[in-house]
Simulated assay, not measured.
Amino acid sequence: MAPAQDLYVGLMSGTSMDGIDGVLARIDAQGRPQRLAHASAPLPQMLRDELHALNSSGPDELHRAALAAVALAHCYADVVTRLLDVAGVRRHEVAALGAHGQTLRHQPGQGYTLQLNAPALLAELTGLGVVADFRSRDVAAGGQGAPLVPAFHARVFASDAPRAVLNLGGIANVTLLTPGSDMPAAGFDTGPANMLMDLWCQQHTGKPYDEDGQWAAQGQVQAGLLRTLIDNEPWFALPAPKSTGRDLFHAAWLAQRLQGIDARPEDVQATLRQLTVETVARALESQPQAVADMLVCGGGAYNKGLMQALAERLGCPVSATDSVGVPAQEVEALAFAWLGWAHLHQVPAGLPSVTGARGARVLGAHYPA
């Protein structure tokens, strides 16, 4: 039986690897979440460097990954402690903690996906029941295991008109919400979002990201480079369902496509921003129904230049989810609180209309407190 408590914690550290967000939510019997509190913390630089390194094969990586998982669990537990202190909530009042972990490999075509996590240790450190390993059941059922959040988006952001919900984390993924449809949601990854822009910004300015898109605004989109980036990557032409990550879009991917390109660094940054815009737009244009508006979450929602470019290219209203009461930076953490609720209540959150799996599946594995 599902517990009587209606308080859930969600944690998120995404493909951008810049930090950890934690959200405390109250979720009612119909699965409607109410955000109560938020806490966040940056990832320690040594751990962040190790997580980046572990995205590629290397020496003694099994041992290193295990140690990194332990360190990540301690960072997660610190955020949980801070979150509950801020909210004035005692641990026994929380039904469960949803913790996705850090994706290091995502290869659904080969039958596996790997998220670095230590959920048993996290349960010990926090005294909370932990729900983790959200992707693997869907992959076992023949699905992509991603995106994970469209079922949550359908509960929170549904509208009377067709709507898109765009998550701009390291990778961009879009959810399509169609009122009156038999499918609660459709969704898929569209390509890189902050991942390549952050990488290029770090290499050339030393800053972790391009704040407000100010650096990109100093450059000019290079049309030839943009065509090269899109046309020379077969993944962009694949039909949905599809998903991707650092397995494909990484420093070597970008370096290979920049060979022989004569462009200022800020022009490359402007072009990478437009790569996100154009691949999102083309993905939406491939769908049978146009959307009336778009809500945007993730760190990219605070990149003013990126948001303006999206609105200009899409020709529909584009706004951050803050406009409907959910801070953009907290949406995914709130989603994992909801996914923890869905697991305990045996609500299928893995949707065939999103992942291509053989059927809807209850996602996650539970580690009791």
Results as ranks from 00 to 15, higher is better:
V277F: 06
D247E: 15
A141H: 12
A309I: 09
Y367R: 07
R90S: 15
G359C: 11
V268Y: 10
V165A: 09
P368R: 06
A369Y: 08
C297I: 13
L275K: 03
D78S: 15
W200I: 03
R313C: 12
L24V: 06
Y367A: 05
A172W: 08
G315N: 05
L225V: 11
A53W: 08
W235A: 06
A292K: 11
P119A: 10
V280L: 05
V277G: 02
W341K: 02
E266L: 09
Q274N: 13
I230Y: 08
L148R: 02
L36M: 09
D267M: 13
G88L: 14
R313H: 04
I20P: 03
L54G: 00
I20C: 07
L176F: 12
L148N: 02
T178K: 03
S136P: 01
G22W: 08
A140E: 11
W253A: 02
R155S: 14
P192W: 10
Y209R: 01
S57V: 15
A29N: 01
V324L: 05
D60V: 07
L24N: 01
G340F: 13
L344T: 08
F336R: 02
L7D: 00
E266P: 00
V347C: 00
P33R: 03
P42V: 08
A95N: 11
A240M: 14
S56V: 13
E278R: 14
C201G: 00
V23A: 15
D60H: 14
A68H: 10
L62E: 04
G129T: 09
W253L: 07
A292N: 12
A158G: 11
L7E: 00
A120V: 12
R264H: 15
I230H: 03
S40K: 03
A2N: 06
D231Y: 04
T113V: 07
T244I: 11
S243Q: 04
A217E: 14
G22L: 12
G187Y: 10
M12L: 13
V130N: 03
A69I: 09
N167R: 11
G224F: 06
E233C: 14
L43K: 01
T113Q: 03
L166M: 05
R48C: 12
V70W: 02
G129Y: 11
Q144N: 05
V9E: 02
A25F: 08
T276P: 02
L67N: 06
A53R: 15
G109H: 07
H38W: 12
K207V: 08
A320I: 10
T113H: 04
A161E: 15
L51V: 08
G260M: 08
G305E: 07
A95M: 13
L72N: 00
V94R: 06
M294W: 03
P208F: 11
L258F: 09
K304S: 15
S323E: 14
A328T: 04
V354A: 10
R64S: 01
G315M: 13
V23S: 01
R358F: 00
Q269V: 05
T276I: 05
V296F: 07
D198W: 13
R48N: 02
H204G: 04
D60Y: 09
T205S: 15
F152T: 00
Q110R: 14
G187H: 06
A53F: 07
D6I: 01
L225E: 05
T205Y: 06
L196Q: 04
W235H: 10
G245F: 09
P348L: 12
G245E: 10
H153P: 07
L310Y: 09
N117D: 13
A151Y: 14
A193L: 10
F134N: 02
D28V: 09
D182W: 04
